[in-house]
Simulated assay, not measured.
Amino acid sequence: MTSSDADPRPVTPQDAWEALLTLDSPTEQRHPGTADLDTLGAEGLVRTILGADAAVVTAVQALAQPLAGLVEACVGTIAAGGTVHSVGAGTSGRLAVLDAAELGPTFNAGSDLFRAHLAGGDAAMLVAVEGAEDSAEAGAQVVAEQVRDGDLVIGVAASGRTPYVRGALEAARSRGLVTALISANPAAPLASLADHALLADVGPEVVTGSTRMKAGTAQKLLLNALSTATMVRLGKTYSNLMIDVRPSNEKLVARTVRMLVQASGAQPERAHRVLEEAGGSVRIALVALLADAEVPAARSAAERFLPDPARSGDPAGIRAAVEALRRHG
């Protein structure tokens, strides 16, 4: 996670008032069904909040087509050696940081693939940094200093107007980079700066303006689907199993052996032995088990069929490697 060191300028009352006037988002409207919110007991509150959350999934599912377009753009960027950058502030930025951080242990994907930039830097992950989101200059600085030609920049902003995100998107577009916006405002002002605009219409929040609620949930779902689909297209899975997992603790080592058993039907003891012979490479061990081949032959086959998103139906290359071994040994 990275951010610009530029200090945000002080926000004047006039600035705040002008921002309020331009903030036209459903999340800022009062929810017609929660006017009595503070009169409810615990069960009533919970039912009201969860009932409102039910609309989020429908709103996100409506974006399947544009999300698929962004997935392909991300796949193309990474396959060409580029990085996907997400830029956000507050809840939106923290969700982007969380998603990027979790790709490491799950898909062995480092910051060279997905990188998140949070307004206010690392400290803002735990404690809000007042005014950080209001600096368009800081967002532009992130792009100038940490984004390379060929990279892709995604702005994450519930309101669709955050100055920090605007600065980043403007700077990215000025360099001809592919841009995207993930927002909970169907009329997001920043949508005009995005080649791919994902605008989830989640409606008013249960607590007016609290975008950590439905808007945050929608952004979390979109970020999860985006990064996961991108990793699958890049060959990080075989079937629905993680094959590029980084076994950094006992749980992940056990999960790796279990995955090999699930994929091949081999006994756990054999799967563990083959994994050790393969030097911990799940891909090589899986090819060996599926083809009933020795590890050196499996290694050679796996190296001939490296992950490639252009290989239809087999981006990981596992099926092609196994078939080659079965045909030619």
Rank of each mutant, 00 (worst) to 15 (best):
A124E: 06
F305P: 01
T256R: 00
V322T: 11
D134P: 02
M259W: 03
L199C: 12
E28N: 04
N108F: 07
T83C: 14
A52M: 03
D308F: 13
G104N: 12
M259L: 12
A316S: 15
A288F: 08
R166W: 00
A42K: 11
T228G: 00
G76D: 09
L260K: 01
S312H: 10
L20V: 12
D149V: 12
G93L: 05
D24K: 14
L169N: 02
D36A: 15
Y164L: 03
R304M: 14
H85S: 09
G167M: 14
R246I: 15
G160M: 08
L98V: 11
V261G: 03
Q267W: 08
H196L: 10
L40N: 07
E28A: 14
A285R: 11
L241G: 00
D15F: 10
S174C: 09
L169S: 12
A320V: 07
M1V: 07
L118C: 06
A100F: 01
P8H: 05
N185V: 02
A96V: 04
T208K: 12
V142F: 12
V274G: 07
A132Y: 06
P307S: 05
M125Q: 14
T179C: 14
A119M: 04
L193I: 10
R9A: 14
S135W: 07
T27D: 05
M259S: 15
A116R: 08
V253N: 00
V287I: 13
T228E: 01
T217Q: 06
L223Q: 01
I243G: 04
L95P: 04
S248C: 10
V84E: 09
W17E: 14
A172T: 08
V156G: 03
R161W: 10
D7I: 15
N240R: 12
S227V: 04
T256I: 00
R175Q: 10
A68I: 07
G82C: 09
V282I: 15
V129E: 07
G104L: 15
G167H: 12
R94L: 04
R30L: 11
L152K: 01
P26V: 00
A80Q: 09
Q262Y: 03
G90L: 06
A254P: 03
K236V: 01
V253I: 13
R115E: 13
K251R: 15
A200C: 03
G82N: 09
T34Y: 03
L37T: 06
A119Q: 01
I78A: 05
G317E: 04
A79R: 11
V11K: 00
R166M: 12
D112T: 13
Q61A: 12
A157P: 06
E303F: 10
V142W: 11
T83L: 03
F114V: 09
E205A: 08
C74E: 11
E18H: 12
I243W: 02
A297V: 15
L190R: 07
G216C: 06
G317T: 06
L193M: 04
S210Y: 01
T162V: 08
T106C: 10
T256D: 00
G69F: 00
V245A: 15
T34I: 05
H196G: 10
S312Q: 12
E18P: 00
R327T: 15
L221S: 00
R326V: 14
I154F: 12
G313F: 02
L252A: 02
